[in-house]
């Protein structure tokens, strides 16, 4: 009840229920934005429990969701002016799909929430609407047995809910298929970028220090080498981090190949061609950058499998069997070539 996005309370036979509206405030949007950048994201939660969206009655639909605030906000925003009950299950602040995959959104948890919050006293019907992406964790037929409430799976996207409700809880095939359009990929970029730059900056700093090593290092030219040879390699690494974390999500459908690590190799090659056209390194130095950049971009795009919407565990394991050795090999060869290059020019 005592949460900033709650506006008042609704009296029900099961006691007072916090009321929310579909209007998101500046604080809601700011909080969502921060979560996208990884700020406080692992603790962006709402209290589990029953909420009233606007003024629902005993025949209003009950929508089940997770206690990640970004999820609840998307749900209430998309429902517009509708009246509904929202049953928020404790998933530890994780979204529905991930929570279902990890087991924190499950049949038992939904049944317990129905029981604990007195849903049978609040509504006269005996049906809840589960999010379709909760299905890896929640079984509709089991819920009926455990709670007495039947379950219908709603659409994947909250934006389809008004039409789904208006059609008498019938979903079209489009509502049932998970899409991964550029907008959904783009919102993931900040998280990818923050992680990539964190590692990228550390590697770039190490390369700058190592880059001082070359002919004449011990007779006064260490610093000049570090600021030339070293900083350029650091720049190549940061450019690769940028390419992998921004280019990977955006260009995903157009990068050749099915395996994400392979897509990353092509993207790394593209980023290297652009950089060498601009910087014109000596041949061996350029080959060194190539190995380092291919390894890094391939790794970053491979790691995007977890954020994508269509990869399987069997597939990820299969590509990692060749990709991880390849990335280690390319990175090691690149490092050796780059370290040797000042002596061999």
């Amino acid at each position: 009840m005592n949460q900033p996005f709650v506006s008042g309370a609704l009296e029900t036979p099961a006691g007072q229920v916090p009321r929310v509206t579909s209007r998101l405030t500046f604080a809601d949007r700011l909080g969502g934005c921060k979560a996208r950048w990884g700020l406080g994201r692992m603790n962006y939660k709402v209290d589990p429990g029953l909420y009233a969206l606007h003024s629902p009655g005993d025949s209003s639909p009950v929508l089940v969701t997770a206690n990640y605030k970004l999820t609840l906000d998307a749900l209430r925003r998309e429902l517009g002016g509708l009246d509904a009950w929202i049953l928020v299950v404790d998933t530890n602040g994780i979204n529905v799909w991930c929570a279902a995959g990890k087991g924190t959104f499950g049949t038992e948890g939904v049944a317990a929430a129905i029981r604990d919050h007195g849903l049978e006293k609040v509504v006269s019907h005996r049906r809840v609407i589960l999010p379709q992406l909760g299905a890896p964790g929640a079984a509709a037929h089991e819920l009926k047995r455990l709670s007495g409430f039947g379950a219908v799976f709603g659409p994947i996207a909250a934006s389809h809910l008004p039409v789904f409700l208006a059609r008498g809880l019938k979903a079209t095939p489009v509502m049932r298929k998970k899409q991964f359009p550029w907008r959904e990929r783009a919102v993931l970029i900040p998280m990818e970028l923050v992680a990539a730059l964190k590692w990228g900056l550390m590697i770039a700093a190490a390369l700058t220090i190592l880059g001082g090593l070359g002919p004449g290092s011990f007779s006064g030219s260490y610093l000049a080498n570090a600021l030339g040879h070293g900083l350029w390699a650091g720049a190549a690494v940061l450019w690769a981090a940028l390419a992998g974390s921004v280019g990977g999500p955006l260009l995903l459908p157009w990068l050749p190949g099915r395996a994400f690590a392979l897509k990353g190799l092509w993207l790394g090659l593209g980023a290297w061609l652009a950089l060498t056209a601009l910087a014109r390194p000596a041949p061996l130095e350029g080959l060194g950058w190539l190995g380092l950049m291919l390894a890094l971009v391939s790794f970053l795009v491979m790691n995007f499998t977890g954020a994508s919407t269509y990869t399987s565990l069997s597939g990820v394991k299969k590509e990692m069997r060749w990709a991880v050795p390849a990335q280690i090999g390319l990175g090691a060869l690149g490092l050796i070539a780059w370290l040797a290059s000042p002596w061999l020019v």
Binding site: A74, C98, A158, V187
Partner: peptide
Amino acid sequence: GGGSACCCSPDSRSVGGCC
């Protein structure tokens, strides 16, 4: 531990746009 797996960066697999 699997509990802190990446993957569940909340966003990719959510209503608005895992892990």
